[in-house]
């Protein structure tokens, strides 16, 4: 079973997040900003989680100027979303690089924690 388990692609992961944040916009209240994820290595790409007056959503590519940029590997991002790794530990362990607004980066975990993926 586990052998045949196909990891969701980054595109799929961001679609899941997009659906989740739209289901309950109250979770992202007070966390307004543009979070950019630079995914490295396998499944490379740039994605954004945008939380603004138009409601929370994710997009592929750099649609807006990011407030904070998080650079990490696809597998670490999957762990982050699954709750198996938290951003603070990832940062302290060198698995996550952060540029820009650190306060917003701290709030990311609260956003991710609010959903069961």
């Amino acid at each position: 079973m586990a052998k045949n388990y196909v990891k969701p692609s980054m595109q799929e992961v961001f679609q899941i997040i997009d659906a989740a944040v739209k289901t309950d916009p109250s979770v992202t209240k007070g966390k307004e900003g543009v979070y950019q994820f630079n995914i490295k290595d396998e499944d490379e790409g740039t994605y954004q989680l945008i939380i603004d007056e138009n409601g929370p959503r994710t997009v592929e590519g750099a649609e807006q100027d990011p407030y904070v940029i998080l650079t990490l590997k696809a597998d670490h991002f999957r762990d982050l979303v699954a709750g198996d790794l938290n951003p603070t530990a990832a940062f302290m362990g060198g698995k996550l690089k952060i540029k820009g607004n650190m306060g917003l980066a701290l709030k990311l975990q609260t956003v991710l924690n609010s959903f069961d993926f």
């Binding site: 938290n86 650190m102 306060g103 701290l106 709030k107 975990q109 609260t110 924690n113």
Partner: peptide, 12 residues
């Protein structure tokens, strides 16, 4: 100080 405050305000 704001970083510290934001950190402490998170329930986790």
């Amino acid at each position: 100080t704001s970083l510290y405050d934001v950190q402490m305000a998170q329930d986790w």
